[in-house]
Design a protein around this nucleic acid. Structure first.
Length: 548
RNA sequence: GCGCCCGUAGUUCAGGGGAUAGAACGUCGGCUUGCGGAGCCGAAGGUCGCAGGUUCGAUUCCUGCCGGGCGUACCA
């Protein structure tokens, strides 16, 4: 509908002044109209008239058909949708264009490294990734959720050193050693190795030696400890993914992509890469980037090389993806710019569809959780805390699971990606304010009203002012969703839903539904409202139970 | 040093050339014998970091500065 209006306005501008331009339609202050455009300001100067005169002239030529009417105020052209146009809009308010039909999108996220903790940053990353995946699915894409893990590299050697020095590198003592690492053996032994690495040269060289054995796989004891540690790690990761309801299509490992990438880099030395000080590097300065090492002077591939191999591996498994999104913390943004620059010279078609999406740093609001000083909070700890808080606040709810999942997911997606965010557990589970449970409650309440009535929702071509206001708000979904999808900004959906719920509560406060003369049309509004809440939450993979 | 991101109410955050800069939390004051009050209405609270520039119009774009985060050759 808005497309048709924009078209009509542009035609009127062209007819009046022979000017071709571009405009957007914004939601107007309700006292002025439903939508507004400032096109008169844009063209007024060129045609030598004041904005109000220009707007009047445009309106004189404007043919909106039965879509609505327009009037000028202070240079703005305010458009009011006709009731019939609004009614038909309302009927298709939940529909999103299936522009991804028969198209494939790859989304990579949740790349926690085995042998290390899955901390709250990984949790954030995982939820954002699954949300972006859901958004693409809502627009009809077939989405493959992929994870990628650094199962080789110095951090692994540090961990093996940490545990190995305790059990004298005897794999049979591994299980016993795990229990001595407390409730978080992975983090515990990694921290030990890390400490030794920085504090002792002897340990550092031993760790580097272990690292070589890991790549070469030529030491049976190290191989076995490695296998056990990796198994333990992924068991933990899978437990968390299952808790969150995240379903991956495929897990990739750096140990698999390393050789593919290394071959690719070696083939392109002198073309894309240069040798320097014994290492193989990519010089990005000419493109405004920086230089990065792809193969070390010890002849080991770095993360960048493995990522090149990963791009190829993904393409082999899922050829012709229209979009490949990589989601990481934004500390890796510059890194990805270099990696993608190198990729664009080797596999331009792959680089073209690849987008890196960076998110900010997640911290927790100071509270009881900060008692574990010096520790990074693990994903599991935060999940447990939120779950526990939900059980206390909603002891009788039949939907506790959905509530705590929604609390987590909503809280992490309601902020614009890229900025650092502070997670407040109490706020995340509260029914007051901009929270997941608030939206869930709004949805459950609407469903309950619909269930209670014995009449059927029925559209009508005439709205009372309060009804049309709600209807307009409901029809805003499409725009919010498009913005979220096109700009990879899930938070626009959260903010929209929160605003919509506020509109509804305000409406519901003074407009009786059941038993009113206008029950059918109001039920229609409520049903559309409930569907929008469910669809919007669903697009971000947030559950919306019927009761809570 | 250089590069990228960020500075909006007491706090957490939206907005991102255009009509009076918004919301939530917190504070204060009202409403409620009704469909889920877990709500609604209202008040107080802002030099949109500072200074220039572009523009009919700048919180928004540009430049500089101040403050913060991240990155910046062999970690990921």
């Amino acid at each position: 509908m808005t497309d048709k209006i924009i078209e009509a306005v542009l035609k009127a501008v062209d007819d009046s002044f022979g000017v071709k331009t571009q405009i957007s339609l914004v939601k107007a202050d309700p006292k002025f109209g439903d939508y507004a455009t400032n096109v008169a300001f844009q063209v007024a100067k060129d045609i030598g008239k004041s904005p109000p005169e220009t707007a009047e002239a445009v309106i004189a030529k404007l043919d909106l058909g039965d879509a609505g009417s327009a009037e000028q105020k202070g240079g703005f052209i305010n458009i009011k949708l006709s009731d019939s146009a609004l009614a038909s809009e309302l009927n298709q308010a939940t529909l999103l264009p299936k522009i991804g039909e028969h198209k494939l999108a790859l989304v990579e996220f949740g790349d926690a490294n085995p042998f290390k903790d899955m901390h709250i940053g990984h949790l954030y990353n995982t939820i954002v990734g699954d949300g972006i995946s859901g958004l693409f699915e809502a627009y009809g894409f077939s989405v493959k959720r992929l994870s990628y893990h650094g199962d080789v590299g110095l951090h692994v050697a540090k961990w093996i050193y940490g545990v190995g020095s305790e059990i004298d590198f005897d794999p049979t003592k591994f299980t016993e050693a795990l229990s001595s690492g407390g409730d978080d053996p992975l983090g515990y032994f990694y921290a030990r190795g890390e400490k030794a690495y920085t504090e002792s040269d002897e340990a550092a060289s031993k760790i580097k030696e272990i690292n070589k054995h890991i790549y070469a796989q030529d030491d049976p004891k190290i191989n076995e400890i490695y296998r056990l540690g990796k198994e333990t790690s992924f068991e933990q990761f899978d437990k968390i993914f299952a808790l969150l309801g995240v379903h991956y299509n495929k897990r990739y490992l750096e140990s698999e992509t390393a050789s593919i990438g290394k071959k690719l880099v070696e083939e392109n030395i002198g073309k894309v890469f240069e040798k320097s000080q014994g290492a193989v590097i990519y010089e990005g300065e000419a493109e405004g980037l920086h230089t990065r090492v792809f193969i070390t002077s010890n002849d080991l591939p770095t993360y960048e090389t493995k990522d090149l191999g990963f791009a190829v591996a993904k393409d082999k498994d899922y050829p012709n993806a229209q979009k490949s999104i990589i989601i990481t913390a934004n500390e890796q943004s510059d890194y990805f710019a270099v990696m993608l620059a190198a990729l664009s010279k080797i596999k331009p078609n792959l680089a073209k569809v690849t987008v890196h999406l960076g998110h900010g740093f997640l911290s927790l609001k100071a509270g009881k959780m900060s008692s574990r000083e010096g520790n990074v909070y693990t994903a599991q700890t935060l999940i447990d805390e939120v779950k526990k808080a939900v059980e206390t606040l909603y002891p009788d709810s039949p939907a506790k699971h959905d509530i705590y999942i929604s609390a987590l997911r909503y809280e992490l997606m309601k902020h614009k990606l890229g900025s650092d965010i502070v997670f407040d557990i109490n706020e995340s589970i509260s029914l007051e304010g901009n929270s997941g449970p608030y939206i869930l409650y709004a949805h459950a309440r609407a469903r309950s009203i619909l269930k209670k009535s014995d009449k059927q929702p029925s559209p009508q071509n005439k709205f009372e002012p309060a009804e049309r206001r709600l209807a307009i708000a409901i029809c805003g979904f499409r725009q919010a969703a498009d913005e979220a999808f096109e700009g990879l900004k899930p938070h626009t959906i959260c903010n929209y839903l929160f605003g919509l719920a506020g509109e509804f509560n305000s409406f519901y406060e003074t407009n009786r539904v059941i038993g009113d003369d206008r029950e059918e049309i109001r039920l229609k509004l409520i049903s559309a409202y409930a569907e929008i809440l469910k669809t919007g939450l669903g697009a971000l993979n947030i559950p919306a139970p019927e009761k809570m």
